[in-house]
């Protein structure tokens, strides 16, 4: 499972960086969301994977019985997902506006701010 996740994360990162380096602004946005997904999965995987052991406190005791899945990375990922939801929505709106105001879809042509 760990190996599978590692491969998925690696694939997402490479796909993300590849897409960012393309010239189309739409691909850029897709690449950015790939990057954030990859980071989310990385946080999830780095926290350690425990199968089928929900961190629930059994009746009558004060702490869950180890080994149990660490709930914190999941909470972190949830927060990060919410953030990336907002950011992606904004980035989409920005791409839309950029395309409307500049009429450009090619990142290499967005060079008016450079000189």
């Amino acid at each position: 499972m760990n190996l599978l996740l590692a491969i998925v994360i690696g694939a997402l990162y490479s796909a993300g960086f590849y897409l960012i380096l393309r010239r189309s602004i739409v691909k850029l946005i897709i690449g950015l969301s790939f990057l954030s997904h990859a980071s989310n999965l990385l946080v999830f995987a780095a926290g350690g994977l425990t199968r089928g052991r929900a961190p629930l406190v059994p009746p009558g005791s004060l702490a869950p019985v180890p080994p149990y899945a660490d709930p914190l990375p999941q909470a972190l990922v949830l927060t990060a997902i919410v953030i990336s939801f907002g950011v992606t929505a904004f980035a989409l709106a920005l791409v839309n506006r950029t395309y409307q105001t500049t009429g450009q879809e090619d990142i290499d042509e967005l060079r008016r701010t450079e000189c």
Partner: peptide
């Protein structure tokens, strides 16, 4: 509010 603001703004533009 935020979600509706995003949806309204995007569908109005």
């Amino acid at each position: 509010g935020v979600t509706l603001l995003i949806i309204f703004t995007l569908s109005e533009s």
